[in-house]
């Protein structure tokens, strides 16, 4: 694709002067060279010294962003060290997300850290093979990771060990089509539109209603034959505007 544009294009001057002397559009050699680029962030060196076998490799992306690949089995230990060591003090977990590169390649879980006092950023990545999508939760270190990890679980199917409340967060809890952000998941979903509409309407808005389900991993599955025309039910929580109350 890249070369197509260069050779087939008409404008004569294609020499892109990238910022900071970095070749902006050359993906292939960048990867090979990356190991030789010295890290910008001193935390990377400290991390390598502290965990010589936990840190697999590191590279510099997009000019000045440090990325550290670590052993997925030791994620909680390494991130806790980064959070609690006074010299590092990565107290702000900006983001937890995942990347599926498709083609059966492992899913990357990405932690984006920021240290408010040190003003430094670090990106930590772990690779998880598709048949063992399990990693330790970091909610014990940053409570802000709670919903972020739930979202990764919902959209990628990565299980976080030790998470206090690992349920789907965006999709319905009885969603049967899979994990949408995987590359093998089709854009329009797996079921036909009619099937999706029917399934959506057989859900009852009052389901998933009790805080008691917290801590349970098993979602309540709606009985498919639920009688939604029931008048008693129909005066339920759908509108919510009238402050529906239900005594436990």
């Amino acid at each position: 694709m890249t070369s197509d544009l260069g050779s087939g294009g008409s404008a004569p001057d294609f020499g892109l002067v990238a910022a900071g002397g970095r070749k902006g559009h050359d993906p292939a050699p960048d990867t090979a060279e990356a190991g030789n680029v010295p890290p910008v962030n001193p935390s990377v060196t400290a991390l390598r010294r502290q965990f010589p076998d936990g840190v697999l490799r590191n590279r510099v992306c997009a000019g000045d962003q440090d990325v550290v690949h670590i052993d997925s089995g030791r994620v909680a230990e390494i991130l806790r060290w980064l959070h609690e060591t006074p010299d590092q003090h990565y107290d702000h977990l900006a983001d937890v997300t995942a990347v599926d590169h498709g083609g059966g390649r492992p899913i990357e879980v990405v932690y984006q850290l920021w240290s408010i006092p040190q003003r430094s950023a670090l990106r930590v990545k772990c690779e998880l093979p598709l048949d063992a999508l399990e990693i330790e939760s970091v909610t014990g270190i940053w409570q802000g990771a709670n919903w972020l990890e739930r979202e990764v679980y919902d959209l990628f199917g990565v299980h976080f060990r030790g998470h206090p409340d690992l349920r789907r967060i965006l999709m319905p809890e009885n969603y049967a089509e899979g994990h949408p952000l995987r590359k093998d998941f089709p854009l329009r979903g797996r079921f036909s539109r009619a099937e999706q509409t029917r399934r959506a309407l057989t859900q009852d808005p009052e389901d998933y209603y009790m805080p008691g389900e917290i801590g349970e991993r098993t979602p309540q599955v709606v009985a498919s034959g639920a009688d939604d025309g029931d008048e008693a039910k129909a005066s339920g929580a759908g509108a919510g505007g009238e402050g529906e109350a239900d005594v436990l």
């Binding site: 498709g102 083609g103 590359k183 093998d184 998941f185 089709p186 329009r188 079921f191 036909s192 099937e195």
Partner: peptide, 19 residues
Amino acid sequence: NRVSGLVETGAIGRPEDRL
């Protein structure tokens, strides 16, 4: 569909997956 050099994923769901 994605033409980024990855595996081809059809936009429509596989028929055998449909109920």
